[in-house]
Write a protein that binds this DNA or RNA. Structure first.
Lengths: 352, 352
DNA sequence: CTATGCTGTCAAATCGATTCGATCGAAGTG
DNA sequence: CACTTCGATCGAATCGATTTGACAGCATAG
């Protein structure tokens, strides 16, 4: 028990060859039950807990580890219930593959994991979960390493399967609903287009420089119905940022009769801004979100929102990983969304 | 480019031995700059992105992967801002080690990762982050595999360094504060003692069967000041559970003049229960929490709570891992907490 | 001219498994 | 009895690096 036991130690003690011992642990039907028994007993006596995963990985070429790239610090990324739900679906699906999820997060300084770290990690595949993609250092590094990649809501890159939702159509549907309610002056609170801390109005240049697919698509969805809607970008997808943007928009004159937030978190902030300004929702202003996130603290308000199947998005990403690992080329997936009416939208206030 | 290049391919092309190539990639000072240059160029030409991490791991015995055991599904675990903050601190510290964090979560069926999965994962160490410990299958498995372990708020196990906070003293301090405000009839909403879905009053047997150290310690902290305080256990650390327990406690007669929740999330639920019952806080009832979590949606209420240095707890766990990996035996760490008074506690309502 | 140091490079052992084709004895068949 | 079949086990190559001690070459010192 001085040195840790290895497979050959165990084999020797069981009186079989190393290959047989290996087969025994792998549960191969080709080895006699009595032999398996003997090997297992020997292992037990030597305190051998099973084949060394690293050695096995070297041989099989599989480490059993899949990376999830989360651009920001976990602290910020996971404040977003959508990110959490996505990861939940992903782990669920990966779990059935017997594969673990490794978090690749940025820190306060940089966004994204360090290249050095990425190079030293044994990844079978990686999912770009909540982060931009174009011109992303981590992305290029993993590509160079030939690590199979899956992009969730990322831009279209040849060879990288995409998992997304109907961002544009979903937002357009919401916009049409508002139009039917008589709204003509609608503003949008957008998630960041890229993580550079910028906030404020979005012009064409900024839109073109955007990295986040979802942000852009939702914006375009609204513009398809309200071509000259004012759009204010936030520096992060959070309640506070939503509130700040909401205060900005709702304090303008003329005041928009409806504010569409690109996420439920931002919408919660807008609701708070409305409260601060003494505006009734939906009496004075309608507010809508996106995601269908569960925000238990928002009760009893029921936010009008576009529900996306977030868990399924994670599962779809997981299935894409599974396909890649088995050598197939998975198709892109675009999941449907659904408008859910709540108590925060109503007929447009008649313009006086 | 047919087969993936390996170190020896690169070495051959650069006209050096494999060892030299390896040294070159490792940045050893013993190899001439010109040679390094030549090796790097050859690597570039062959599309070789650096040494295979798995092979390196086999040789060095380090995989660069540290597991974080999260008992529940991510979806539930990460609803808790404390868990997220803890992991944030942990990743931050592990990042400086150049090590990645692998999430080991349970799923809807079981709690805790599957044994099969645990056995096949190349872990350098594991942190028990938000889960029980005694009689935990995952715990025993990792111990059998000789994986260095760190327990956060776990029970005391010989050989396993512990990172904790002053759960008991902190709660006792809060209790004394309430006593000074004149409260005599104080009730507690407890987090789960173990994950079996049970809720309701806690008796001695249940307390003894508890797995979660924090829950027990906070309970005992309150009892040290109010020996016969009523304690109601919840089935999960969530707003909804807190609300349910709050409705239960606040509907009793005589009604407690103060409710101490074991977490801020539960406290938020109690606040909602008070609202539902038309009780003023702190006029009719005082409410306090634990954690000092940041709950942006709770504004403008400022919860009286016991602030724990959650991020530092994660960092401390990370440092413990670092120590273990360098062969040292880290000391147990108990971090201090601090009472933060908010707007939810006040003098006891005079008993009529 | 030989001894000594110092550099840069290399050969070879090693990490701990997996896996395929070979082997071998026993049982079944004509 | 000779021959095939079949099931169980084994040998040996292989995965792709790291790392140590040895060695060649060259400059400097004695």
């Amino acid at each position: 028990m001085s040195d840790r036991a290895t497979l050959s130690t165990v084999a020797a003690r069981a009186g079989v060859s190393q290959s047989t011992a290996s087969l025994a642990f792998a549960g191969s039907p080709r080895v006699a039950p009595a032999t398996v028994e003997r090997v297992l007993r020997a292992a037990d006596e030597l305190g051998y807990a099973g084949p060394n995963p690293v050695a096995a990985s070297l041989r099989t070429g599989r480490s059993g580890v899949v990376g999830a790239v989360v651009g920001e610090r976990l602290l910020y990324a996971f404040r977003d219930p959508v990110a959490v739900q996505l990861l939940d679906g992903l782990t669920e699906e990966l779990g059935t593959l017997g594969v673990g999820l490794l978090l690749l997060a940025g820190d306060s300084m940089r966004s994204g994991p360090t290249p050095a770290q990425l190079g030293r990690l044994p990844l079978d595949a990686a999912v770009f979960a909540t982060c931009g993609l174009e011109d992303d250092a981590a992305f290029r590094l993993l590509q160079a390493r030939q690590v199979p990649l899956v992009a969730v809501e990322g831009p279209v890159v040849p060879g990288v399967p995409l998992v997304g939702i109907e961002d544009r159509d979903g937002t357009a549907g919401l916009a049409r609903h508002l139009a039917e309610l008589g709204h003509r002056h609608v503003a949008m609170v957008a998630m960041p287009l890229r993580l550079d801390g910028r906030r404020g109005p979005v012009d064409d240049a900024r839109l073109a420089a955007g990295v986040y697919r979802g942000t852009r698509e939702r914006l375009l969805g609204l513009r398809s119905v309200f071509p000259d809607a004012t759009v204010v970008e936030t520096a992060a997808n959070s309640i506070e940022e939503g509130e700040q943007a909401g205060l900005d928009l709702l304090d303008r004159s003329p005041r928009p009769t409806a504010v569409v937030a690109q996420s439920d978190l931002l919408a919660a902030g807008v609701l708070r801004a409305a409260g601060t300004l003494g505006l009734a929702v939906p009496g004075d202003v309608s507010v809508a979100g996106f995601d269908g996130a569960d925000l238990p603290w928002l009760v009893p308000v029921r936010l009008t929102t576009v529900v996306q199947p977030t868990t399924e998005k994670g599962q779809a990403a997981g299935r894409a990983v599974a396909a890649l690992l088995s050598g197939q080329v998975p198709d892109d997936v675009v999941l449907p969304v659904r408008l859910r009416l709540g108590t925060t939208t109503g007929p447009a206030q008649s313009t006086t």
